[in-house]
């Protein structure tokens, strides 16, 4: 319980811009299912992002036309670009895994960008969100490796190439596999949190000292960071999946 209170205090101490929940006039310290509303904020924001993506995809493909116009054309352009991009990395497996890595990319991009809209909040600046995404990537990578290569091929992948080096390489491969979700989640979390904190500090500075929006150049940089970090998360996920499938069906 004490640890819980300490974590809550640390969350409140971090510098953040206000969200729309602060304007509703409700008590942010009340607990729902053991978490305070401050801790529910990333969950609510990620649900908003997911619902937005689902809604716009369903709306755009509700009655597909032969000659697409407007929204359908835009969505098809996104899907085709992603397909072309990931085909370089994953080869023929793209048609199976594009829905997974493509929606990872769009979801993370949307969540990163939400922090730039006033009164919204990036849910990726909470380690729990990014760790959840990285764990999904971890388990799907190993499931793919197991189902595509079978039990023997799956373990052979860990043993390394010269078989007599296996006692040395096997622990290294295991540690490397376990470090992947950690580095994936920490990279995304650290980048987005650093960027959002810098924006919040500059907004505070602009309000208290200068009355000019000196955080504006940081917003442009944040647009770039959001795009690159979402891209890197999806690229690394596809690289891991391509590595788990193996090299025998490349090109």
């Amino acid at each position: 319980m004490e640890e819980h209170a300490a974590a809550e205090k640390a969350a409140e101490k971090s510098i953040e811009l206000p969200s729309f929940m602060d304007l509703l006039g409700i008590d942010m310290h009340q607990h729902i299912w053991g978490l305070s509303l401050h801790q529910w904020l990333p969950v609510i924001m990620s649900v908003i992002a997911a619902l937005f993506l689902c809604g716009i995809s369903i709306y755009a493909t509700r009655n597909p036309k032969k000659i697409p116009g407007g929204l359908q054309c835009f969505m098809e352009m996104i899907v085709e670009t992603l397909d072309k991009f990931f085909r370089d990395i994953m080869g023929s497996a793209t048609s199976v895994f594009l829905p997974f890595v493509g929606s990872l990319f769009l979801y993370i991009l949307l969540m990163n960008m939400m922090g730039l809209i006033p009164l919204l909040h990036s849910s990726t600046n909470n380690l729990n969100t990014t760790l959840a995404l990285a764990i999904i990537v971890f388990f799907s990578t190993h499931y793919v490796g197991f189902s595509r290569n079978g039990l023997i091929g799956y373990f052979k992948h860990f043993l390394g190439e010269p078989l007599w080096l296996a006692p040395l390489l096997f622990p290294m491969h295991i540690i490397g596999e376990l470090a992947r979700p950690l580095s994936l989640s920490m990279r995304l979390f650290g980048n987005i949190m650093g960027e959002d904190t810098a924006i919040a500090i500059l907004v505070g500075l602009a309000v208290s000292l200068f009355y000019i929006p000196i955080h504006f150049p940081m917003l442009l940089l944040a647009l770039l960071t959001s795009l690159i970090q979402a891209g890197i998360f999806a690229i690394l996920a596809s690289v891991y999946i391509a590595g788990a499938i193996g090299h025998h069906e490349e090109h």
């Binding site: 920490m186 650290g190 980048n191 890197i232 690229i235 690394l236």
Partner: peptide, 14 residues
């Protein structure tokens, strides 16, 4: 290059 930069940058992010 971008993948490599991501790996290098992760160290600073830690």
């Amino acid at each position: 290059m971008i993948i490599g930069l991501a790996f290098i940058e992760a160290l600073t992010i830690y």
